[in-house]
């Protein structure tokens, strides 16, 4: 899994996706092919900025093994001000999270491959204010 993570570091550490210059559609995660324009697609990388709004969320109680220590954690769909929607964790109190909440990006650790494996970092979100 190392190469698979490494390949996408740029897009995980910051919110870098792609925009199709033919139709203007914006994609996160990045695509090298626009599903709308297909072969006419002209993809360009773009940073979608720091902020967005919670579209929906859930507090996850039954966690995968690698997230056992984080239980419970919040997963949300966030509509970025820059366009696309991203699936991400939101770090805040359960009582704070709500649909429509304004959030901003934060660089955080997602999980680790045990005590001797690599650490997977990425983008999470925290309340904007």
């Amino acid at each position: 899994m190392l190469p698979r993570f490494w390949r996408k570091i740029k897009y995980r550490y910051d919110i870098v996706g792609t925009v199709c210059e033919t139709c203007g559609s914006k994609y996160y995660p990045p695509r090298n092919f626009c599903p709308i324009c297909r072969r006419k697609s002209k993809m360009k990388e773009v940073n979608f900025g720091d902020k967005g709004e919670v579209v929906s969320y859930t507090v996850v109680h039954d966690t995968p093994e690698e997230y056992r220590m984080m239980k419970p954690y919040i997963v949300a769909l966030i509509k970025l001000d820059g366009g696309p929607t991203i699936t991400s964790q939101v770090v805040c109190d359960e009582s704070e999270i709500h649909i429509g909440m304004r959030v901003k990006k934060a660089f955080r650790k997602y999980f680790e491959d045990g005590e001797d494996g690599i650490i997977y970092y990425g983008t999470k979100f925290v309340p904007e204010s």
Partner: peptide
């Protein structure tokens, strides 16, 4: 897996 599973979206 890469964009949902990774972030703990079961």
């Amino acid at each position: 897996r890469e964009w949902e599973g990774f972030v703990g979206a079961t």
